[in-house]
Design a binder for these strands. Structure first.
Length: 269
DNA sequence: AATACCCTCAACCGCACGACA
DNA sequence: GTGTCGTGCGGTTGAGGGTAT
């Protein structure tokens, strides 16, 4: 069932987000929530497709995102969870509050994979020796069958027949958005701008951080009247995040605990 | 100092799923 | 029952910064 592209490409901007766009998006979501990503860019006056807005929000602008380097504990958790869950980054992210699937995926491919598979990597490197000039793409991650290891049907626990890396956990893929979005008050770190390095504190970093803070205060203090879109104000983080999704998480948490796979690995949820 | 190479990460792409008409 | 829509997910790409030569 081929779906039309998520957006009519004409006229829509692609590529890196500007701070202006970030402000607009954040302000809009803070005021009106994101009930409909597809309609959001139009309502907010952004020349982006809804998908792009969603990604930007989830991976970068959400106030509860923890930025900065991964701690040793986090890295260890990722390794353990990856062992259990495979490339199910969203499920892994759900266990690491404040971290996004994209971020975890990046960390895995850039650091952790090498750490746990040094020999394998060497072999691959030998098979495909420097292979070329200039920028080289790293070898692709082992392809998992699309969809096969993906979300389970809601409230079912039927393991798929294929050889997905894990079976019982597959249904745990509460999205990052659902799982962590409730921590609205936790706006300690700031989105949309260079990460502050948690282990370095250069003056430059401090400067960036200052800017971040002002970004948020500025954004959050924007008057509602500056939006002429007649929408119902609502919780910027969506009502679902406060009740239904939390219940889901509890349910799946119980399932995992009972499955015996994920016991010590759940420091918090 | 200049250049080439490497690494990181934000963003894009395409597919699959659930909801709904 | 079927098709479409909206969303979520994992894989992949490429710009840009960092490092080595």
């Amino acid at each position: 069932m081929g779906r039309a592209p998520c957006c009519e490409k004409m006229g829509l901007k692609k590529g890196p987000w500007t701070s202006e766009e970030d402000k607009v998006l954040v302000a809009h979501i803070q005021r009106f929530g994101h009930g409909n990503w597809r309609a959001l860019p139009k309502q907010a006056g952004l020349l982006r497709c809804g998908k792009s807005c969603r990604l930007r929000w989830i991976n970068y602008l959400r106030p509860d995102i923890k930025r900065g380097n991964f701690s040793k504990e986090e890295e260890d958790s990722i390794i353990r969870l990856h062992k259990q869950l495979g490339n199910r980054w969203s499920a892994i992210a759900a266990r690491l509050p404040g971290r996004t699937d994209n971020e975890i995926k990046n960390v895995w491919h850039t650091h952790l994979k090498k750490r746990i598979e040094p020999t394998k990597d060497k072999e691959e490197a030998r098979e495909a020796p420097a292979g070329g000039s200039g920028k080289k793409r790293r070898p692709a991650a082992p392809a998992t069958k699309r969809g096969a290891a993906r979300r389970a049907p809601a409230a079912t626990n039927v393991p798929a027949a294929d050889a997905a890396p894990v079976s019982p956990e597959r249904s745990a893929s509460s999205s990052v958005t659902e799982s962590s979005v409730t921590e609205q008050g936790n706006t300690g770190t700031s989105p949309g701008f260079p990460k502050e390095e948690s282990f370095t504190s250069s003056p430059d970093a401090a400067e960036e951080f200052q800017f971040d803070e002002s970004f948020w205060s500025e954004t959050l203090s924007m008057p509602l009247e500056s939006f002429d879109v007649p929408m119902e104000p609502c919780d910027a983080f969506g009502a679902a995040a406060t009740s239904g999704a939390a219940d889901d998480m509890d349910y799946w948490l119980r399932v995992f605990m009972e499955s015996g796979d994920v016991q010590q690995e759940l420091p918090q949820i």
